[in-house]
Structure formats: structure tokens, C-alpha cells
Design a protein around this nucleic acid. Sequence first.
DNA 1: CTGAAAGCGCTTACAG
DNA 2: CTGAAAGCGCTTACAG
Lengths: 328, 328
Amino acid sequence: MKDVAARAGVGLKTVSRVVNGEPGVTPETERRVQEAIDALGFRRNDSARVLRKGRTASIGLVLEDLADPFYGPLSRSVEEVARAHGALLINGSSAEDPEREQELVLALCARRVDGLVVIPAGDDHRYLEPELKAGVATVFVDRPAGHIDADVVLSDNYGGARGGVAHLIAHGHRRIGFIGDMPRIHTAAERLRGYRAAMEDAGIPVAGSWMSLGVTDPERVRRAAEEMLTGPDPVTAVFAGNNRVTVTVIRVLAEQARRVALVGFDDIELADLLQPGVTVVAQDAADIGRTAAERLFRQLDGTLATPERIELPTRLITRGSGEIPPAD
Amino acid sequence: MKDVAARAGVGLKTVSRVVNGEPGVTPETERRVQEAIDALGFRRNDSARVLRKGRTASIGLVLEDLADPFYGPLSRSVEEVARAHGALLINGSSAEDPEREQELVLALCARRVDGLVVIPAGDDHRYLEPELKAGVATVFVDRPAGHIDADVVLSDNYGGARGGVAHLIAHGHRRIGFIGDMPRIHTAAERLRGYRAAMEDAGIPVAGSWMSLGVTDPERVRRAAEEMLTGPDPVTAVFAGNNRVTVTVIRVLAEQARRVALVGFDDIELADLLQPGVTVVAQDAADIGRTAAERLFRQLDGTLATPERIELPTRLITRGSGEIPPAD
DNA sequence: CTGAAAGCGCTTACAG
DNA sequence: CTGAAAGCGCTTACAG
């Protein structure tokens, strides 16, 4: 900028005015400055700008795994809202590791992002207290924050799961299995609660062997599904706790002779083209992301007062697998 | 930082030393400083740090659409490499719009990212010349840069498509359709070239009605597929130019009485569970991202000399749909 | 082991 | 319409 000013024979402030399109520069001066900018290949250094202005026009998004089909659309919709507000998006995956989440979040804070959208991996977010006090806007998504009062946007996990299981019961099932993620994960716990509620509503006692919670890698899920299907008290239907689980359960069911009903939480691509089509409890990832990001920018506008908990509805989509009657 | 120094009764430089874990501070002094840091909730401002140090420890990734299942794993692997080098990832979607690509790239340059991984939407990247001269490391991915000499990592689109079409020919097909993305997109053009080559290798003249290039939204693709399948010279097999096309073609074929063979470019989740399983030419998105990011950091290390073009192989995965014989 | 001064590249508040 | 001075929060190069 100094070089540009020297070459154009003007003061620093005049260059600043031209670069930022501020008024109060004669066309002739502006031309000279512009010419110098082009000749020198000058580009304003936003880091320096940020240092003076306070805001960085960037927000951070910490999620579990960018490669998961649920988070792609979510990221994209957060990005679109950020873009509408002139902000860039810094993205990071926690890989479901609380330490990595904290490391990422604090790195983002050190970069002085204006706001933070966090899909929590950990369950204690007190480490964020000083940052919140310092004015970093924050919205938690998909799972609530731990030990801290903050905005949170989530799906109706309890209601969705309860409805999905009730659907299976309505089609005549009583022995229904539940395979979900680790119980420390809020969504998994809530969906399990929904499962239990639906069973209780129907007066069906639940056998311990019908519930399996744990990591959602294919091996664990496969084992859990096989045990439920072939044990002494085999289930006639399975409720899958998320998209990763559903995919593996579909694989297992495809190998079974007996037809077993299935309802999965989360929609999956091509679910309608499988034989049978896969009935799911769908959440709208893009809508969740949009809602969270809009709330974040409203915090930054100062138009938001107290933290709120926003619960978005889910939608049961019947495609065949959830309407299969019990085999026996 | 000034406040911390005042509270601890030390100089600025000493605080800096403690914050950065530099040697040359007595344990007692360090304790006092640390205490002041905690009490004040101090966090180093990386923007200011960047201003002095030169490097921002962040890289930018501009892709087409974060919500596309091909780009999720790619982003994630770029992120992992960045993380290994202590850098954060700023992510942006161009939505296949050259202007938006340029806008994003230049915004990233103004933030002084150390490097840039770009999946180009446009075909002229001369606007990047001043930045490259200024030392921004850059790697193009999936499609080459336009009018500029830069590193590029791509799949063997030509060879992959040629192999996929040859596979259909080997199974007895002669009337084979090709449905792809807009011809100005490099990957689409290369895959079409591969299709033509395979047909020519087999001495099969290609009818104009067998090729359809354009946007890959479901409506256009559906129309194209239906025309090829029901026209005066109907095809017995379809080669789908990318994952978006494949999904729609599968839908159309499911509605047809006649069994039509299909090979798609890009693997898709659950492809093995459809009836029939979908034969694809797979590219490894994670590997592409990793290769590009590693090259980027080697540029930053200075261990890289001249720009190179790296072509990654594709893999034909047979699952049934590509092995269906011609209907007539 | 410790700290005062200068400077990174901008903007703010002010004066001319 | 234009510009000189001060300062954003840090690090560098140096001296003690």
C-alpha cells in the first residue's frame, strides 16, 4: 500500500479510499491510484484490516466428519448464509473426538472468527465461557452444549424415533430391535428414548438383547444386527439409529432369507430404488444448517436476546421396508 | 496482552514467550504470567501474529458444491493433510459459476491463505497470475487451470471412460448412449472423448442422438435418457458421465420394461445393493484430495520445482448393470 | 533471564 | 478533496 501511494504520488489514506470504494476522491486521482494498484499487483491485506476493524467476516463450523453425507448439505447451507452476510467459512472435522473439537474451536477463536457453529463431540463446553464473554457468537447444532447456556438447533430426535417405531408397531411388529450410536452421543440417547417410549405406549416389554448401542462402524453394526436376527428371541423389525447404521443393516438384511422390516433415522440417497424401498425418519440437514447460521448472524446483529433451543421436526417417509409385516 | 503484562508485572515480550512456549523464562515468572492469562481470559490474536509472521497457517479450498457426495471425502482428506501441517481449511463452493470462483479465490488471497486448492469452474485463471508471483501455493484439482502454468491433479477421465465403454462393448453392445455434463467442463469433455475412442476402437459409428451433454439436473438427464431409449435407433446400454447422471439414469431404467445395461462414472453409495448392482468407473476422491494437498505443502516447503500434471487411475467395479447383454 | 523500540499493513479520527 | 499521526496486537532484532 505504501508502494502504491508512492507510485501514485498520493497519501496512504487516499489509496485506502480507492481500495474500499469510499467517496471523496477525484476521478483523476482515483485513476492514478488504480493504475498503480494494477501495475504493482496490489491486493489489500485483510489480516491487517481485521486487526483494526475488529470483525473478521469469517465464521467457523466444527462438525463430526465432512465426508459424512449428512454434513455435506449442512455445511453448504451454512456457507450460503455466511456468503449472504459477506463472510467466509472455516471448516473443521472433530472426528467425534472431544479433544479435537476443543482444539479446533480454540484455534478458530484465536483466528477471531466472528461466530461459531459447533456440532459438539464432547459434552462439556465450559472451555468456551471466556470466548462467549468476549463476544464470539455461538450456535450448537444437532446436539446441545454441555454445562453452558447457548443457542442450540436440533432435530426432534425423540419424537422422530418414537414415530418411526410406532409405525413398525402399527404394522404388527412387537419384537423390534434398536441399533444406535454410542449412548454418550445426545442424538443416540434421544432416539433410544423415543424407541422405548413407543414400545411402552404399546405396552410391549423390551428385551435387553433388542437394544445395541456403540460405534457405528460396519463390523460392530453387522454383529449387532446378526445377533438380534438369529438369537433366541429374534426380532421381526429393526430401527436403525442413523444413516451409517441403516446402510449396514440393509446389507445384513439382504443376506437373510426371512423378510425383516426396517425403519432408519436419516434419509439416504437411492433409498427409494432399493428392493424394498427404505422407510426412513428424515431430517433436513440443509434446513438445520440454515436455521443455525441465520441465528448466528442474528446474534451478531444484536437482535437476539437469550439463548434458545430450537427443535426442527422430522418426517416419516414410507417406501416399503417399514411396512413389511412380521414374518411369523 | 498489554493487560496480561501489566497484571503479571512483566514486559510484553515475556508474555509473548510464555504464550508461545519459548525458552528463557524462569518458572516463577511463567507462573505469574500464566495466572494473569487465566484470570483475564486472554487468547493470542492470530490475526496480529499473522501480520508479523507472514504465514497464516490456513489454506483455501474452492470446490463446486460441498453438498455433492464426491466433494465431501475430498474436502475431508484435504483437511487432514492441512491439519498434519498445522493449518486450517477455509472452504467455499463455486456452484459451477466462474465469477463466483474468482470472487472466492481472490477473497481467500486477500486473507493471505498460504495455499489454494481449486476445483475450477471457469476456464481462464490468468487473474491468479499476480497471486502466484506473490507466492501463493496453488494446486488445481479435477480439471486443469486455464491459460496459466500450475500444478494439477486429476483422474484419468479419458482412460476411465474408454475402459467403461469398452466393457459394454465386450458384453455385446454396439448402440451405446453417453449422457454427460456440460461440454465446457473438462471432465465431461474428456469422458466423452474416452467414449468416442472406445467406439472407434471397436469400429462402431456413433449416431448423434446417442450423445447428450448438458446440465446434470434430473429433468434434463431424464429427458435425455428417455429419448435415447425410445427413439428410432434406441440404445441398449448407457454410459453415465458422473454420479449425478448415474442416479437419474438408474431411476429411468427402473421404469423401463426392457433391461438396459449401465456403467456410471464415479462410485455411489449402495450401488452394490441395487438390483442389479451398478457397475461403475470409480475414482478415489479422498486420494485425489490427499495428493493435491500434499503437493500444495511441498510447494510451500520449497521442495517443488516446476508445475506438474498428475493423473490418478480409475478403477472399473463390475456389479451387474454393466454386464447385462443387449436386449435384442 | 528480561524488556524497550520498531514495525507488520491497514483504518480511525482528525486537521487542513 | 487529501494526508500525517496514532494505533490495532502481536513479533523481530537488539540491548542489557
